[in-house]
């Protein structure tokens, strides 16, 4: 099975507190630690497990700047066979449709049986997989937490509300968005990364993909982020202050009053 996994380099929310920059045009980018979007890592692991079972290959692709190459290497260290970096200034500020149409152009240059994305990335849109499938006219299932191969079809589980699993049959080729928890992504050590450090990663531009630069990026975007801000919140929590002992004592009084200690 020829599998393509779309991955995105995203700020690691465990390592960073995300704040707004001075003029509200973006998040504060200084000192941000990046990694591969959490959901995408599960998607790559799933692709590798499928390849190990039925053969084929796993390609990872990302749209980003030069630095996005590091996430491709990381996923190749996990076991992906090939990486493709799609990079062009013309792609900056693309909206969801823009990103999906760039990925579509790349996908049409190859021949893939299965295309995986993460269920969502850092801006929480959860849109690329569904858009891509519709653009390619392929069937789609989102929030997939189980994949079984049954000939020309897959049996997939979707995680819906309440931890309930919805089982579907879907024809190949198809696009699936992967939910966390579907597997346990393998650990990647420094040695693994070193092994793939010198593997050549092709860079594809708008021209390589035959894309009209005005249809993507800022000029093609119908959906635009205008500014970033911290919402004015209601009352918010009462923050307890003092030494840890003092705070603990205050909290115990409050908990007792609310029936929080039996």
């Amino acid at each position: 099975m020829e599998i393509l996994v779309c991955v995105k380099r995203a700020p690691d929310t465990l390592e960073n507190e995300i704040t707004v920059n001075k003029d509200g045009t973006n998040i504060e980018l200084e000192d941000l630690v990046y990694s591969v979007n959490e959901w995408d890592n599960y998607a790559v692991e799933e692709a590798i497990q499928i390849k190990d079972k039925v053969g084929g290959s796993v390609t990872v692709v990302t749209i980003g700047d030069e630095e996005a190459e590091e996430v491709l290497r990381r996923e190749m260290a996990m076991g992906a066979d090939k990486g493709i970096l799609i990079s062009d200034e013309a792609f900056e500020n693309s909206d969801g449709k823009g990103i999906a149409s760039i990925l579509k152009a790349e996908i049409e240059k190859g021949k893939y049986d299965l295309i995986l994305t993460g269920a969502q990335a850092d801006d929480g849109a959860g849109q690329i997989g569904g858009m891509l499938a519709a653009m390619l006219d392929l069937p789609y299932a989102s929030l997939v937490n189980k994949i079984d191969i049954a000939g020309e079809k897959l049996t997939v589980g979707r995680e819906i509300e309440g931890g309930v699993q919805e089982i579907n049959e879907i024809e190949l080729p198809c696009v699936l968005s992967i939910q966390t928890g579907i597997n346990e992504p393998r650990y990647v050590g420094i040695r693994g990364i070193r092994k793939v450090a010198s593997v050549e990663i092709p860079v594809h531009t708008a021209a390589d993909l035959g894309l009209d630069a005005s249809a993507v990026g800022t000029s093609g975007a119908k959906v635009k982020k205008l500014d970033y801000f911290i919402p004015e919140t209601g009352e918010g929590a009462e923050i307890l202050t003092g030494s840890q002992e003092e705070i603990a004592e205050k909290l115990i009084e409050l908990l007792k009053a609310k029936g929080g200690i039996k």
Binding site: G96, K97, A100, A119, G124, A125, G126, Q127, I128, G129, G130, M131, A133, A134, M135, Y140, A141, S142, L143, R158, E159, I160, E161, K222, V223
Partner: peptide, 22 residues
């Protein structure tokens, strides 16, 4: 919700309409 996430993005492509999520 998990249904809207499944439907919305693809629907917008097929309708040639803009999409805003969440």
């Amino acid at each position: 919700d998990t249904f809207g996430m499944d439907l919305g993005p693809g629907l917008s492509v097929k309708l040639n309409a803009s999409f805003i999520s969440d």
